[in-house]
Structures are given as structure tokens and as C-alpha cells.
Amino acid sequence: MSKPVPPEKLAQAGAWLAALGVPAILLALLGFLLWRGVPGLSLALFFADTPPLAALRGAPVFDGLWPACLGTLALVALATAIAVPLGVASGIYLAEYATGRAKALLAFAIDLLAGIPSILMGLFGFALILFLRRTVAPDANTGLLLSALCLAVLVLPYVIGTTRLALENLPLQLRLTGASLGLSPGRTVRHLLLPAALPGIFSGVMLAVGRAAEDTAVILMTGVVANAGAPASLTGKYEALPFHIYYLAAEHQSPAELTQAFAAALVLLALTGLMFLAARVLQTRLERQWTTEPTP
């Protein structure tokens, strides 16, 4: 057996290494996070010295995570509300209607958008405000809405890309079925292709939600602050979980504050993880629905 190791074996060894290594690293990360963060988990983490029930009714909370949690939720809801309709519509158009040079050009613009670093969205938002102030709206200011808008642009390509890919990857039979049933292209899209592509589209939305919740660079430049209380208006400054963690990681003035950072990281991870799981559950349910629908 003096033959060299066959490439299959080498590849197999590499694959095993990756398959064992990555989960191991993740486990170490998670373990460390739990070890440092769990001791900080308590009601006081969220509400500090404000009674929780009072806080839920709107009493101001200082030194707790509550305002940051609300800020992040508001941010994600707004950004998704802007990005999803726009993104799904664009994805459908690119996959089903656009042709020739126009399609190539539009698709290229979207690809380009996907490649733009998030900090540039933030810079854009910041510049936009400076521009607006000098021209038409002297009172324009950085705040929740601006951040949500920039985040929406950031996650838009995720929604567009997955929608388009999900539609384009559908089997040809489905399109032929539509045609053979005498459906117009529009109806084929609506009644056959879209339902089939829904799981794919939802995976895009899932990516978008996760990305919007965790991004720090955009909000860093468009209105997030360390202390602002719960978000009160669309134009106001706000707190957000990822920024809070970033801020405390660098700024913690005591071991207790650092523990708070780790606990906040656990909360954010739980939040993004929960959204992720919810999207997955939804996705599998829709998949099942689609596969059982044709046989009444």
C-alpha cells in the first residue's frame, strides 16, 4: 500500500475536521457566554430599580435593558415593514417579468446593493440628514426612522435575492402546468409559483430580520445612543440591544456592568434565535402545506 493517499480520503479528513471543529468552536463560544452571562440574568437586568409592572406600563427605566429591548423591537419591526414588501415585489419582478438588458442591469444593481458594507448605509443615512438639514428640512435629525430606513436598505437584497432564487429554482413542470391550465402568467405566479416559493421567501425574511436585529454599524451612525429611555417617537433617539452590548463591552466601569454586557448578549442571542426558530417553524409548516395541498 505505497500508493499516495487518494484525494477522496484527504477531502474526507478535511470535511470531518470542519464538521467537528466548527461546532466545537461554537460550543466554546456559547459556553463562555453562558458562564459569564447567566449570573447577570434577573429581572433587575431589564428593569434595574424600577418595578417591572410599572415599567411595562411605561415608567422610565434607568440602567436596565428594557429600553434597549423595546428600541430593538421597534427598529426591526419598522425595517422589516419597509424591506419585505419592497423586496418580495422586486424579487418577483426580477424572476418572472424582467427580461434582457433591463433584467441584467436591475439584477446587477441589487447585487451591488447586497455587497455594500453596513457602515456605508450608516454613513449614507448620516449624510442624508446633513443634506436634508441644509436644503429642505432644517429640523431633520437622526433617529429611529432614519435607522430603520437604512437598515431596510441593508436587508433589502436578502429578501430580493432569496425571493428571486426561490422562484427561479422552481421546476419547469410547475410553469408548464400553469400554461397548460390556461392560466395567465400573472395567475401562474400568484397561484402556482409563489406558494411553491414561499419557504424560500420566508428564509429570506428570516435572514433579514436577524440581520436587522443584530446590526450595529448602521445604527451607530444614525441615531442610537447609550441612554435615551424607551423609544418615544419615530424621530427620537433610542437605545438598542446590540449597541448597548458594544457600548458596555468597551465602557464597562465595573465587573457588574461587564456581567450585564454578557447577560445582554444572551438576551440578544435569545431574541435573534427565537426569531430564527419562529421563521423555521413557519417555513416547515408552509412546506408541508404546499406538499399536501395538491391532493385534496
Binding site: P85, L86, G87, A89, S90, I92, Y93, L94, Y97, A98, L105, L106, A109, I110, L112, L113, I116, L120, M121, L123, F124, A127, L128, F131, V153, L156, P157, I160, S184, G186, R187, V189, R190
Partner: peptide, 29 residues
């Protein structure tokens, strides 16, 4: 029922033009 292609086109144009807007702003400043 039907999905209006023109509405879809509009959405796509908005998405595609946002990239131009970003570049324009960066370049301007």
C-alpha cells in the same frame, strides 16, 4: 388575483435606485 407588473417594476426600481442614491451621496460628499 393578478399581480400588477407595473407595481412590481416600481418596487424594483426603488430597490435598484437606492444603490445609486448611496453612491451619489458618498461621491457628493
Amino acid at each position: 388575483g393578478n399581480i400588477t407588473p407595473s407595481l412590481l417594476l416600481f418596487a424594483t426600481l426603488v430597490s435598484a435606485l437606492s444603490v445609486l442614491a448611496i453612491f451619489g451621496f458618498l461621491l457628493w460628499f
